[in-house]
Amino acid sequence: MNILLCCCAGMSTSLLVSKMKRSAAEQKLDHTIWAVPIDAVSREITKADVLLLGPQVRYMFNEFKELGDKKGVPVTVIDTVQYGKMNGHEVLRTAEQLYNDK
Rank of each mutant, 00 (worst) to 15 (best):
K21Q: 12
R43C: 05
V91Y: 08
P55Q: 00
L16M: 03
V77T: 14
L5Q: 04
M60K: 13
Q27Y: 05
G88T: 01
C7H: 00
I38S: 13
M1A: 11
D49I: 07
C7T: 04
T32P: 01
M20R: 03
Y83K: 02
K47N: 14
M1F: 11
K102V: 13
V17L: 06
R22E: 11
A9M: 15
H89W: 11
T32W: 03
P74E: 10
C8P: 01
A9R: 07
V17I: 14
K102L: 14
C8Y: 13
V57L: 08
G68P: 13
T46W: 00
K28C: 04
M86T: 13
M1W: 07
K70C: 01
T32E: 15
K19C: 00
K71S: 10
L15T: 11
Q82G: 00
L52D: 07
L16W: 08
M20P: 07
I38M: 14
C8I: 06
L98Y: 08
V57M: 09
Q82H: 09
S18E: 12
N87F: 05
I45K: 00
L29S: 06
K47P: 03
A24S: 07
A25C: 02
V91G: 03
K47I: 05
N100Y: 15
T80P: 01
T80C: 00
D30K: 10
A48F: 11
